[in-house]
């Protein structure tokens, strides 16, 4: 049963080019994801594929020059802007990338306490800190005094004390050593097992595979494939989209074959399928229009040739 559903989301920015000319820059096009309670959906893709923007769009914290279209529903009801404002920090929580997301002039204990929406803030904060092995002294520290691992657990605490049912983690693991990273990932698994829906945004496929239930592969601002974790195996035969296969095969422990070319920039998107210029399967039909997301073998894919 899906709790948060994003359908055909498009995000574009108004930009001034030369003089007063305005240009629409489409950074996310026709994106679909689905979050389910108790499950972790990992969102993987290269930098600039729109992963963070998706998180910001769900929370309604995009800059004011952004325009969004498509539909989002939370618990079966339309997620409007005013509903986003009401729900964020309460039902939907963000676990941001780095310690820069904490106010540099406020003690971290207080910042965690201000995230509490119901109940006793001091008690909830203490419980969360205990749960994540943060000593009492950490409450009195300022963000710049935290080590990487402590910062990570503090940020996670802000989400946990809020009591949110949907947790969106935006790149929660970079810069951590393997042991700390494993622990951080385990925390997300625990949250999912306790009934939360977790969206884990990362570009580290390995860590995504170790804890996620489903993987959504992003390319140039759209979802090209959503597949169960089990499909990421062998030479990627079970994968549906050529980009997912290429991504899988590019990993050092697999074939280690890089895919030539680069992801198109939002200002020069191809007219047809977004992956067509780099696709080994491309035909004339691929240039005719953007393919729709379609169901295929327990997953979904955006490719007319996928079997």
């Amino acid at each position: 049963m899906s709790i948060l559903e994003v359908k055909n989301l498009s995000v574009s920015f108004k930009q001034y080019t030369t003089g007063m000319k305005q240009k629409e820059l489409q950074v996310i096009s026709d994106l679909n994801v689905n979050l389910e309670a108790g499950k972790i959906l990992a969102v993987v893709g290269a930098s600039g594929s729109g992963k963070s923007l998706l998180a910001h769009a769900i929370l309604g914290v995009l800059p004011s020059n952004a325009k969004i279209s498509g539909s989002m529903t939370y618990a079966g009801e339309e997620l409007t802007y005013s509903r986003k404002i009401a729900l964020r920090g309460k039902e939907i929580a963000l676990v941001p990338q780095s310690v820069n997301y904490l106010d540099p002039l406020m003690k971290v204990g207080k910042q965690v306490r201000t995230s509490v929406r119901s109940g006793d803030p001091a008690r909830k904060q203490k419980e969360a800190f205990e749960r994540y092995h943060l000593t009492q002294k950490v409450e009195e520290l300022y963000p710049f005094q935290l080590s990487g691992g402590m910062a990570r657990r503090t940020l996670l605490s802000t989400a946990v004390v809020s009591g949110a049912k949907v947790i969106i983690a935006d790149e929660p693991t970079p810069g951590l050593d393997p042991a700390v990273m494993k622990e951080a990932l385990r925390h997300f698994r625990e949250l999912a097992d306790s009934g939360c829906a977790v969206m884990l945004i990362t570009h580290d496929i390995d860590s995504a595979l170790s804890i996620a239930d489903e993987i959504a592969v992003f390319y140039a601002g759209t979802t090209v494939e959503i597949a169960p974790v089990a499909d990421f195996t062998g030479k990627g035969e079970a994968l549906r989209h050529p980009y997912s296969k290429a991504l899988w095969q590019a990993l050092p422990q697999n074939e280690f074959i890089p895919l030539p070319g680069t992801q198109p920039h939002a200002s020069s998107l191809p007219p047809g399928c977004l992956f067509e210029p780099r696709c080994p399967w491309a035909t004339a039909a691929c240039r005719k229009g953007r393919p729709d997301m379609r169901e295929l073998r327990e997953g979904t894919v955006r490719c007319i040739h996928a079997t």
């Binding site: 910001h56 929370l59 914290v61 404002i85 964020r88 920090g89 309460k90 929580a93 963000l94 941001p96 780095s98 820069n100 997301y101 904490l102 106010d103 540099p104 201000t114 995230s115 929406r117 802000t158 809020s162």
Partner: peptide, 14 residues
């Protein structure tokens, strides 16, 4: 425009 204001907004502060 800072990250911590974005995060504060994401936590429902306004």
């Amino acid at each position: 425009q800072s990250d911590y204001i974005l995060f504060a907004r994401a936590r429902g502060e306004r």
